[in-house]
Amino acid sequence: MLEINLYRASDGRSLAYHTVKAATGSKKLPGIVFLGGFRSDMTGTKAVWLEDWARRAGRDFLRFDYTGHGQSSGRFEDGCIGDWILDATRIIEALTEGPQILVGSSMGGWIALSIARDRPEKVAGLVGIAAAPDFTEDSMWAGMDDATRARLMSEGRIEVPTEYAPEPYVITRRLIEDGRDRLVLRSPLRLDCPVRLLHGTADADVAMSVPLRLMEHADCDDLRLTFLKGSDHRLSKPHELEAIRTAIDEVTAALT
């Protein structure tokens, strides 16, 4: 059974996490931190597969649950992008040594970009998996009609059906408004590390235009984008997982 540890922040939050440490005496390569998506948790296919690979490869690895996700404290509907960026920043600072390779899935890609911009000393490299920067504004808010927007602003929340869970997602006014303070595609985005982006051509949640926009917008000396034909938003099939591993290897090679 997986041993779950808890990181207790100074404000009372408890974040569930699991780590793998490279064997003593092995060549020290940058550790890997997996940043999950919106309402995902650290038991997902990509997180577990990457941890197994990291263990075999002799790499430090960290996966965790944001506040309101998985086994961490708090309610999901009380959280927002700023909270989850803070969670990621705190746990990386507390539990890792040296710059890390951040592997961000969907919303985790947005969080990884934010940390790479604001805390570049903590980031050795970045891999975006169907990265969804600014999705609260460009997907959620942009996809609402006037009546839905008015209801969200007056009532403070709406419920949105999703194929990823039996119960609808709760979208709050705070999530939307806080997201506007965290946008990364509207202001300079300098990334001082190698970046690899993976995106499926059949992704129904994040359009192919998003990684293209990110590639054009970011100021980065080593950024590559790979489209996987026919792949959807999950990117969890065996060949897709291998593509993620290859991207991590490319980032590692660029550093060493």
Rank of each mutant, 00 (worst) to 15 (best):
G98F: 10
T226V: 06
E177D: 12
I85H: 09
R182C: 12
R224D: 14
V127H: 13
A16R: 06
P120D: 09
T136D: 02
R190S: 13
R213F: 07
L29W: 04
F64R: 03
E121D: 14
L86R: 15
I85E: 09
T172I: 03
I91L: 15
A204E: 15
A131W: 00
P211F: 03
D60M: 10
E163H: 09
Q71M: 15
G74Q: 13
A132N: 03
D181Q: 14
S187N: 10
I115P: 07
L183I: 09
I176G: 02
I111D: 11
R39C: 10
D60P: 00
L35W: 04
R151S: 09
I32W: 12
T162Q: 05
P168L: 13
L197V: 12
S187R: 14
R119P: 01
G25K: 13
A202F: 03
G74M: 10
R90C: 02
A22I: 02
Q71D: 15
L35N: 08
E51H: 09
I91T: 10
C220K: 04
R213K: 13
L235W: 09
I248G: 04
E93F: 04
F61E: 07
T256C: 01
T246W: 02
R90F: 00
D203M: 02
V123P: 01
G98Y: 09
D178T: 03
E240I: 08
A150G: 01
S114M: 12
L175V: 05
G230S: 11
G12E: 08
E177K: 07
E3A: 15
I32V: 15
D146S: 06
S72V: 09
L113S: 14
G58T: 05
Y17Q: 09
P168I: 14
K27A: 11
F38R: 00
S209Y: 04
I158C: 01
L62C: 12
T136E: 12
H233W: 04
A218S: 12
Y66L: 05
G12S: 03
A247S: 07
D192R: 14
E77M: 07
H233M: 08
R213T: 14
C193M: 15
S187F: 03
H18V: 13
P211Y: 04
E159G: 02
M140Q: 10
A23I: 13
R8G: 05
P166I: 03
F227A: 07
L29V: 09
M144F: 00
G68K: 09
A88N: 14
I176W: 07
D146P: 00
D203C: 03
T45M: 07
L152M: 01
D134K: 08
A247R: 01
R224N: 15
M1S: 14
L255M: 03
D178I: 12
R63S: 10
F38I: 03
V160S: 05
I81W: 03
Y66G: 10
T43Y: 11
I248C: 09
T136I: 08
L198H: 06
L102W: 13
T172H: 04
